[in-house]
Amino acid sequence: MSIKTYREAINEALLQEMKKDENVIVIGEDVAGGAGTNGEQDAWGGVLGVTKGLLKHFGRERIIDTPITETAIMGMASGAALTGLRPVAELMFVDFMGVCFDQILNQTAKFRYMFGGKAVTPLTIRTMYGGGLRAASQHSQCLYPMFTHVPGIKVVLPSNPYDAKGLLIQSIRDNDPVIFMEHKNLYDTSGDVPDESYSIPFGEANFTREGKDLTFIAMGQTVAICNNVADTLKKEGKTCTVLDLRTLSPLDEDSILEAAEETGKVVIVDESYPRCNVATDISALICQNSFDSLKAGIKMVTPPHTPVPFSPPLEDLYLPSEEKVLNAAKEIL
């Protein structure tokens, strides 16, 4: 066990799985970098350095830098997964899914069902999402609800380094297509991560705080926000549960309902656009199944229905914050 960053945890998961299984390959733009240049090879290791260092272990045969061509990247990775490789394809920013969604939506995600259960597509798509870097409307979106909407693809949102490693290893080993979504703001966060390989099963949400007065439901980057707010409220004498969903598809419905019923008061914190997002989905689930145990209307903390603005004060206003979450909690406590 040692302290590692989220970035290091992801890198270590890739390293260990690639050592273990020669069918695992990494495909993407500048995942090593320096291709065809006279300068440093492995010059980038991904735009934020997450895959840096893999090149020296596995060479360009398994760390494959591609042209800028997301449709071909996703299609190639899907086809390779269908025929015997176990690719980890990188989509640099999830926003670029706009370029290549067909390969996910109509191809990979549907192979197994359309082909009557014959296809096995062990594809992992790693991608970066979320706001906070002042990266503006085309580089800051979350978009995970677009994937949870599609049957046939699993959606994973690790909230911390330990989960990032275990869930990425599970993603790579999983025989279904998985999109593994990394929040940009989490890369430099750190925590205890075992040195050995381990996996965390999908569909098992994690209780990061347990309490009696209120339940926060969170995913990815919003987990830390909720943990902090729960800690603040504890000092004020209120104890809260925080449920980290870990995977949005499959969704741990039992834990969600259990967590909601225990306190009867629910705040869901979701950084994605507010219409048809994870918060609305979960709130419908709770209303359908646990309506009688609710003691207050469900609160959702989300951005407004707007693109992500560039200007720093506007982006700060846009994003869910501890202050907003605390206020939402206090309204129903």
């Binding site: 926003d95 503006a136 409307s137 085309q138 560039f310 200007s311 506007l314």
Partner: peptide
């Protein structure tokens, strides 16, 4: 990211546009 920016501060470097000048936008 200022209010009087060419796109009201909402776009930033990668989204500068001025349709009155025939500039249909930078692009991310």
């Amino acid at each position: 990211g200022k209010k009087d920016g060419i796109c009201g501060g909402k776009g930033g470097s990668m989204h500068i546009a001025d349709l009155s000048k025939g500039m249909l936008g930078a692009n991310g």
